[in-house]
Design a protein around this nucleic acid. Structure first.
Lengths: 198, 198, 198, 198
DNA sequence: GGCTAAGCGAGACGGTACGTCCCGTCTTTGC
DNA sequence: GCAAAGACGGGACGTACCGTCTCGCTTAGCC
């Protein structure tokens, strides 16, 4: 008799359930503290104290304080992947860049992104998680746009699809991390001129 | 006849001179420790112990351990600015990218660059120093190449000079920090195709 | 029937309890180190290392290293207050002096007493604690003996009770701190001849 | 021909002479600092800075900062030994106690005495110097008085001469170090009643 | 209703590194 | 050769957080 695949029972364990209230308080406190003192001002002890929570509760659910922050970012910033179809490569790109830059222009988001990328360099385990979840999702969204253009025959022969991703995210992160210049409409135009060769 | 102002004699103060031996030992120890354990393994106490030096001697001459590392990088990697004239924009660019990528391909250099950029996000004061010295010098070198091309009439109308800088360094840093893919010859080709529009 | 007020239960707080093992290890390490290198050889770092304990655990429970040492002395030396009734002033005094001198003749006790009195001069806050707890308790014990003699009519008119305390403890401490001559039976006789005027 | 003993030439060494000005500035600065922050506030670096002097100059002439302080005390307090003859034991004692207590009642003197006795416990080498010079001189002064009384037949049979010294200096130091009660006329009376048995 | 099993706030624990203070020494220029 | 200046190796300070480990308590499913 073949065993049928069971849908995993969503909840059968005894014991107290995870506190939604604490979870929210922790994410909120993490954002608060990063906003106030940058990533250097974000400590597990500080989050616990601010959230009115025991440190153990944080360590129980997140492997590091950067993971807390990443969760907070995803939850708070409504990080939808904007890969909708706007009828053409240029229009799709413009929409993607507009959405992405608009998000990265909110100061606290930029601050959190800086903190995450910095921590990814220092904590290799988090670095892997960060690349494999957050960064990959962003790349995949843009890759879908490029792929769609290729299928349409919309895509210029150069630069190659992967280079498109490197150029777009390279400039984005470089401005956030290094020059701190705004992600503005002018930059969208420059990028489009490079990528679309109108 | 009035005496003309003399250039001030470079040294007249009393007191023991700064120890060149200690300075070198500190820079060497910093590179060693970063190589062994990443930036997380770099501590002022560790550097002092490894270099056979008092902690105060480090704090006396560098504002933070990241500044030590930056000095060590500049001194060790012979960071010459490769803006020589190769006869044309494409050739100049190719030379610059080759030099730069060759340097960034050495693993310990990449490790140090990651550490510095990460610390620049966490320590705002160091961030400013890092931007205003190291990053600016790199940008200026490339800017001179672009400028020379513009004077020659060699420069394509798009992308704009500043965008060139953002694209080149954006991709460079993005690969170092995020994707960790190699800075190889293929990337040089891709960049040239975008920037020169052959 | 109303319930009568109950004495508060001695422990209801959450959180891990203080480690008795660490407490003992700290006191023991403090005595060891003073024995080996005098008070100058007693450092918080040394105690922590020797006791296998974090420095914070010491700072959490004692305001200074001298307080650690005082606790260790009180605990280790079984500092009972020898104010038993031996039938008369002279006998009481003789018993008190014998007990006290016997204690102060143990080399490590003398070493600790020197360290405590010295630190009391250097650290005013500890000085106050030292006077108000340790020194006061010793004085009170002798004062009870003198008081009992006064009630019995046993007490000579001079010296006044407070002067008795000053003379006894004065000589005791002077020998410990200054001359370092032994606290021997001869001194007991001399003091008795002065205080009792037999 | 026998060589005649030459009187040592009082000054023949080459080089700059010891600066009297620096010496005075150092002693003054030491007293200032002890007055301001107790012995804990007395550091060699502090004295050097306050006196406008190099640290080496201090180390050249004094083995420890406590020796500086001792010199300052001796120089400043005009520590004459008051063993003049007043015609009888009681009168001599009264004069000695009066002089001594008057000196010890000046707050800065008491502070310095506390510091010296404390440091003598912590630094064994200084302890020996302190006992063999300062403390011994005080004891000798009182011993001369007692001796004179003995020769006159003025001295009571008890307490023994050495006990007299222990009692007097014991009470004196005990008040300075432990109880911090004033060295007043009442105490002189009490001591006389014990020592003279009028 | 009692039992077992989480999860919770609280907080003490062994550690590591921080940045500072001061030590006592050494080295330089200048008198 | 003494003096001021000041850098040097070293050691301890007291603090801040780390990540772990009990506590007493609460909240859930299960027999």
């Amino acid at each position: 008799m073949p065993t049928t695949a069971e849908p995993p029972p969503p909840r059968a364990r005894p014991g107290r359930r995870r506190s939604e209230e604490s979870r929210r308080a922790i994410l909120g406190a993490a954002l608060d503290l990063v906003g106030e003192g940058g990533f250097a001002g974000l400590t597990v002890e500080g989050v616990a104290a601010r959230a009115g929570v025991g440190k153990q509760t944080i360590y129980r659910w997140w492997p590091s304080k950067a993971d807390v922050l990443l969760d907070a970012l995803v939850e708070e910033a409504e990080l939808r992947v904007p890969a909708g179809d706007h009828g053409g490569y240029a229009a799709d790109l413009r929409a993607f860049l507009g959405d992405t830059f608009r998000l990265g222009s909110r100061p606290w988001v930029a601050e959190v992104l800086r903190a995450l990328m910095a921590h990814a360099q220092v904590d290799p385990a988090f670095g892997e998680r960060f690349r494999d979840s957050f960064l990959r999702a962003r790349r995949d969204a843009l890759r879908r746009i490029v792929e769609r253009a290729r299928e349409r025959g919309d895509l210029p022969p150069r630069p190659a699809p992967d280079t498109v991703l490197d150029l777009v995210f390279g400039v984005l992160w470089y401005r956030i991390l290094a020059t701190r210049e705004p992600l503005d409409e002018a930059l969208v135009g420059e990028l489009l001129s490079v990528l679309v060769r109108s």
